[in-house]
């Protein structure tokens, strides 16, 4: 393998789980669709790797590609969203707690799916625990506006998971 391939493999191994989680959020837990989106994301990472100039962190750069790939691709699959494939969701926990948490996770996916694609991206990044400044860099929305928006979506999401 050449040096580009070695760097690429390192990037892939370090970032695959978070890219996959983000794609799962976009596809309402549809694992096969999420895998396709993650693959598409990493193909774009390869194609743009030489253009990466360290102006933002590598992680921010990958998140941008992932969010944009999901934004562009998800439109094709929107009709399929009706068939939510969220039966296989799992949480790593003791057996007693697992079922309750899985139910909540299924509910969380359903509630995320009700958001617009921009809000979906914002809240998925927030759920990942990214600093709001980084989210604003990924989305291209001012920090102050992101802060307000996140506050609103958080309330909306928590209420949705509670009520349904």
């Amino acid at each position: 393998m050449g040096s580009k391939e070695i760097t690429y493999q390192q990037i892939y191994e370090e970032n695959y789980p978070k890219v996959m989680r983000l794609c799962m959020g976009y596809t309402v837990g549809n694992e096969s669709l999420a895998k396709d989106l993650a693959q598409e994301t990493f193909i774009k990472v390869w194609q743009n790797l030489e253009g990466f100039r360290n102006e933002s962190g590598l992680s921010t750069w990958i998140y941008r590609i992932c969010v944009n790939t999901c934004l562009a691709e998800i439109r094709r699959e929107r009709k399929k969203d009706k068939n939510l494939q969220i039966d296989n969701l799992q949480v790593s926990d003791s057996v007693d707690n697992a079922t309750e948490k899985e139910d909540m996770l299924v509910q969380l996916y359903k509630c995320i799916n009700k958001l617009s694609s921009t809000n979906k991206a914002i809240i998925l990044l927030e759920l990942e625990g990214l600093p709001q400044l980084e989210i604003s860099e990924i989305m291209g929305i001012k920090h102050e506006a992101i802060r307000t928006r996140i506050h609103r979506i958080k309330q909306q999401l928590t209420k949705c998971v509670h009520n349904e």
Partner: peptide, 8 residues
């Protein structure tokens, strides 16, 4: 819950 879910 989100961060603890088992992902591939």
């Amino acid at each position: 819950k989100w961060q603890n879910q088992t992902t591939i």
